[in-house]
Nucleic acid binder design. Sequence first.
DNA 1: TACATTATTAAGGAGTCCATCATTATTGAC
DNA 2: GTCAATAATGATGGACTCCTTAATAATGTA
Lengths: 385, 385
Amino acid sequence: MTEEPSGGDLSRLRQLNGLAVIRALRDDKALTLTELAKRTGLSRASTEDVARELIGRGWVAEVEPTAGTVGRPARRYRFRADAGRVLGVDIGGHTIRALVTDLDGEVLNSATLAVTPQLGRRQRFAALDACVSTALAGAGVASDQIWSTGVATTGLVDGTGRVMLSDSLTEWTGVDLAAHLRRLVPAPVRVENDSKLAALAESWRGVARYAKDVVFLLAGVRTGTGLIIDGKLHRGFGNAAGEIGALPAAGWLRAPDHLRAWSGGKDEFEDVFLAARDGDRDAVRAVRRYTRDIAVGVSALVLTLDPELLVVGGGFSRSADLVVQPLRRELDRWCLRTPEIRVSTFGDEGVALGAVRLALEQVEAALSGGAELASAEIFGATGRN
Amino acid sequence: MTEEPSGGDLSRLRQLNGLAVIRALRDDKALTLTELAKRTGLSRASTEDVARELIGRGWVAEVEPTAGTVGRPARRYRFRADAGRVLGVDIGGHTIRALVTDLDGEVLNSATLAVTPQLGRRQRFAALDACVSTALAGAGVASDQIWSTGVATTGLVDGTGRVMLSDSLTEWTGVDLAAHLRRLVPAPVRVENDSKLAALAESWRGVARYAKDVVFLLAGVRTGTGLIIDGKLHRGFGNAAGEIGALPAAGWLRAPDHLRAWSGGKDEFEDVFLAARDGDRDAVRAVRRYTRDIAVGVSALVLTLDPELLVVGGGFSRSADLVVQPLRRELDRWCLRTPEIRVSTFGDEGVALGAVRLALEQVEAALSGGAELASAEIFGATGRN
DNA sequence: TACATTATTAAGGAGTCCATCATTATTGAC
DNA sequence: GTCAATAATGATGGACTCCTTAATAATGTA
């Protein structure tokens, strides 16, 4: 939300103060003017002025004053999260998920659709369209009410929203996801890799909320990573940051093979972990070998970035109790300082939440006067030049 | 230089505009009011007002108007880089170097002193003191005229300016460098690892000037790295970012052995490179093996960060023609996208320049109202609350 | 010398913020 | 029920910063 603080007009100052008020209101349920004034550092009079303007713009609303206190009851204000809606979509190999949320990221409705990695491009698009429509309909939101869309997909994504490379989805390389979604929902679209967005979700409202530098490990059938550096998602020059798995020495490609071997070559991993938890020798060994292979690459990430936190998410995080301990031991062997390790609590929904966050980042950029947004009635007025 | 743009007073706006003017003036030699106004986006009248105030504060000076143009000659303004002085110190194993510069980082005087890694703590401190004194005296600057000091040293450094761990310097672990330098020069001191500061120098005014994400490789007797992420030096939670050399798989510890073997175990590397350039089979092979060992770790850094640029500096960068090509080939083998590789042009002075930059960052932080600085006469007036 | 060009100076107006004080609404004690 | 005490609201005036416009000044060229 921070931008270059280059000076300017008086209106620029008003805009900054408006942003400060909104930020204060977003952090709390509702605040009185005096509280707001204290939090923003403005005088009461100015705060009132700013608040009045924000109400006029539709960003802020008044709520019932609370009774029961001494003195004249204060009017209280809240951020109008219901002023707009955003859409977050996760296009995975096995599921497509769409979330409709308000401007606080509060989920209004979600839709999930089972698919397979082998689906062709047209079928996958059809499933995507159906899933989005269901989510919108269930939330009672028309597509032109959506302010911004965020999309997660496997593979490498370029800056314009095109899939540059996807190993795990058939006929997916080269797809222009942004264009497709813009046809579906007339709002700005941003597309990003799923592991990166899962990391973003953790940093937004997950276990990595208070950490500045985070390595996120998506442990599942595929292994992926997302890096949060200085509180922001790090993409890299070619959007390929965190692809340490490409290094053969890291051994990420063969890592799941240890688990596959136990289950007879199939991609069914529930059982290995169950057996390992029951003490099955072979299963325990398979899990340990898997962890050891993963750990080399993770060590490279950790040594490179020296993060405060390592977050483990993805399908295997349900069996985190089996993975975290050996992982920590392995990291202790290689790293100068093993970071704290935490397990994601989002389950399957992390990626989609990250997509929501991506959409919200666009809204916030527009709020501070950067990008454009569809709903110009409200937004255009904010970016008055 | 960017901070949180939280709003506030009207004076805050003036401060922001003052900063914008200073920034514009620092980018150019000298500007007229009209040019300044265009660049800052302010009106001419306001620009004049701001400029007048900055002149009063000592930050800006008027220069001779240029003759020979049509119309009334415009007054021209420049940033007063001579308003203050900063000190940058590089404490290396074999040399201690001190630079005295103005606020533009223009070197006024430099002093170098040869030392050895085996020097005891007291002797090293004595050499340091002598070097700093020489540099100050040669520049005609008294120690209390220094606004800010930056220090580079080998090893891990903590946030308070204490050396947490130094392998290559004897009796250096645990030294409180910041405290020692504050006794020498009464100004705020910041201490940082030498490789990190060399990277900072490249990103400041070296070959990495225009890149946002950079991996800097210090190739020499020791191998070190510095990471620039999103234009800023990345330190890591424990200030240990980039220490990929700790990973045995990276092979950085044994890498110089290939070169040492050629020269009979001594730390004399000039000859190997000379011989290799002359086509000596064994020398060429030694260099290639060295490069191959280095490349694994570099690949890990590159795959992690996906930087735009890889900069090679340090002692071996003088023989860059021999190292860069094989390095690129090795990286092509491992990396998804090999970044552009450039060679530092700073020679030995890069680290000290980075220390200067560290000092200047402190000055700029104080300018934008963050930290405190010694010379309160000028600075205190800026941070008027 | 007149004119075109460009910069400076001055004045008036608008927007934003702050401090202060009178006013209003509510609670709790008598 | 009346009266302090408390705390928020509303209104006024002042200060600061920026912008626009118009008049004035300095230089080069025809």
